Simulated scan of single mutants.
Amino acid sequence: MTASDRTPADLLRSALAQEPARPLVTFYDDATGERVELSVATFANWVAKTANLLQGELSAEPGDRLALLLPAHWQSAVWLLACSSVGVVADVGGDASRADLVVSGPDTLEEARACSGERVALALRPLGGRFPQPPAGFADYAVEVPGQGDQFVPYAPVDPHAAALAVAGTELSGTQVVERALHDAAGVGLAPGARLLSGQAYDSWDGLSNGLYAPLAAGASVVLCRNLGRLADGGLEKRVESERVTHSVAH
């Protein structure tokens, strides 16, 4: 990171400038057998496209509140960084009825319908696939995002001291997210090149930090595992070895 890294989006920009080809997020879903590996450059491209969708097509502005109703998933990580890029508050598991817009997975669509603003749905299918039939009242992320621009420029500068993330009753600014992520990374000894395996949900600060923010802040990478409990005996040990994991937070 650099001295100018005051938001999570700044951390990603620095990582892209320094080591675009290194792995950043490796995602497993042990219910489907899916494995996706995203380099810094590939992840940043998804973030740019999503931020353009958020700012352009969805007309989101700094300070708007987005209810993020998604599990721990690589696409959830993309949305968190896209919100940071635009200046939108990512309210993880937030009340859709109080949000300006909502992003939902397939299991929370009814809850998401409480939002009177723009609604986006993610099928969370392997390879970022679309819904076979788009949910009524929602834009299908997999349909909308591919045509967005590969470079993102916010209409207005993002205030690093403004609210950026809300999770489990705690609201943090962009600067506070970065500071906490750096503290967490130092606490477990994450260094550039480290690989942190996390099986934690994205419903707490610890889950978000271990599953995205701390590795990003440290120049490390994350092996993000959904449905880790479905691994057969010995499966976790094999994954730790095959993925060259240096740190692990399975639960």
Rank of each mutant, 00 (worst) to 15 (best):
Y213K: 07
L196E: 04
A232W: 00
G189H: 14
Q200Y: 01
A186E: 15
A217S: 15
Q200D: 10
N227I: 05
L196C: 08
A201R: 11
G189P: 10
D203R: 04
R226I: 05
S221Q: 15
D203V: 01
S221P: 09
A232D: 14
G189A: 14
G193T: 14
L228Y: 08
D206N: 14
S209Q: 11
Y213L: 05
P192F: 09
W205Y: 11
L196A: 08
A232P: 09
G207Q: 02
S204F: 00
V223E: 01
A201C: 01
L231K: 10
S204T: 12
Y213E: 02
Y213C: 04
A220P: 03
L224C: 08
G211D: 00
L196I: 07
A214K: 13
L208D: 01
L208K: 01
L208V: 06
A186N: 14
A218L: 04
W205V: 12
L216S: 03
P192Q: 11
S198Y: 04
A220K: 01
Q200C: 13
A232M: 07
R226D: 10
G193Q: 10
D206C: 08
A185H: 07
A186S: 14
N227R: 10
G187W: 00
S209W: 02
L224N: 02
L197R: 05
A201G: 13
A214F: 10
C225K: 01
D206G: 09
G207M: 00
G199L: 04
L231V: 02
W205H: 10
S221G: 15
A185T: 02
